[in-house]
């Protein structure tokens, strides 16, 4: 019996250690976002700020994080809408009519493996030519590179899980294929659409590689703002940490909502 208690103790001890390890950096930037200027350069470092410096938040918003927040939101939201509008019909056609057989589906999946730099570089040359660098449209368009294949694969999985019989019954009753898609498949696949929407939003929200290259003085998504803050001459530790906390917030809320579907989303539907 005592061996069992000991094992239980070790098991929980190890788990709690892992939880602390994975959450500690969040504690650290949270604390940092509330530290005063002087508290960043002491040895040993200040673990818990003595007085909470809330002004770091409005200050970071004023210095560019507010613009970053709105830009990120506009871009992520547009990317989500486009991914669903184009992705849902494509997913339906692939799931139910096997368009392009395995090849098309596999090609769409393989885009996930592209090193982004392989498309960023030529896209940059093309975008510069047609004036899409430093514009919302340029970033939204380039995010379809990863968000559209993602939406298609996730929705394909959800649609394949739907019972075929309803669609077949509607077909017998004389419904046109597009009516079946719009009036039967879309409502039934609603959970899939929500999952695809939230994930495509987060992916666009979190992106940095495309953002840093296609942004400029007019369009500055939040991750780019944070990187600029962090690369400046005078590093504003408190303000950057505040901006980082702000950048985490939506992803966190969405992740809690998506808990049940996280595995599916993070593996492009490969693991359910």
């Amino acid at each position: 019996m005592s061996k069992r208690v000991l094992l239980n103790f070790l098991k929980w001890g190890a788990l709690i250690a892992f939880v602390i390890l994975f959450l500690f950096p969040f504690f650290w930037i949270m604390a940092s976002s509330l530290k005063g200027r002087g508290e960043f350069f002491t040895r040993p470092p200040v673990w818990i700020p003595t007085h909470l410096e809330w002004s770091n938040y409005p200050d970071s918003l004023r210095r560019g994080a507010m613009k970053g927040l709105t830009d990120s939101f506009v871009i992520a939201f547009s990317s989500m809408v486009i991914s669903l509008l184009l992705g849902a019909p494509a997913a339906y056609a692939i799931a139910r009519f096997q368009v392009g057989r395995e090849n098309l589906a596999f090609w769409i999946l393989s885009i996930r493996m592209f090193p982004p730099i392989a498309t960023i570089l030529p896209l940059f040359v093309i975008f510069r030519f047609i004036g899409l660098v430093d514009s919302y449209a340029g970033l939204v368009l380039s995010y379809t590179v990863f968000n559209l294949p993602f939406a298609i694969w996730i929705l394909k999985g959800f649609i394949e899980d739907l019972p075929r019989e309803i669609e077949e019954a509607a077909k017998v009753d004389g419904a046109k294929p597009f009516q079946i898609f719009r009036l039967i498949v879309i409502p039934l696949a609603a959970p899939g659409l929500v999952v695809a929407a939230l994930f495509t939003f987060i992916f666009a929200w979190n992106d940095f590689a495309y953002a840093v290259i296609f942004s400029g003085s007019k369009v500055t998504p939040l991750p780019v703002v944070i990187a600029q803050f962090a690369g400046g001459h005078e590093i504003l530790w408190g303000q950057i940490s505040a901006a980082a906390i702000i950048a985490i917030a939506p992803a966190l809320v969405i992740a809690i909502f998506l808990q049940k579907y996280l595995t599916r989303g993070l593996t492009m539907g490969a693991v359910k």
Partner: peptide, 20 residues
């Protein structure tokens, strides 16, 4: 879900945490 938080945040934020 607590453990998973790192995997849903932006790598820029992860990088900033690393910097500190």
């Amino acid at each position: 879900s607590a453990i998973l938080i790192p995997s849903v945040i932006s790598q820029v934020v992860a990088g900033w945490q690393g910097r500190m």
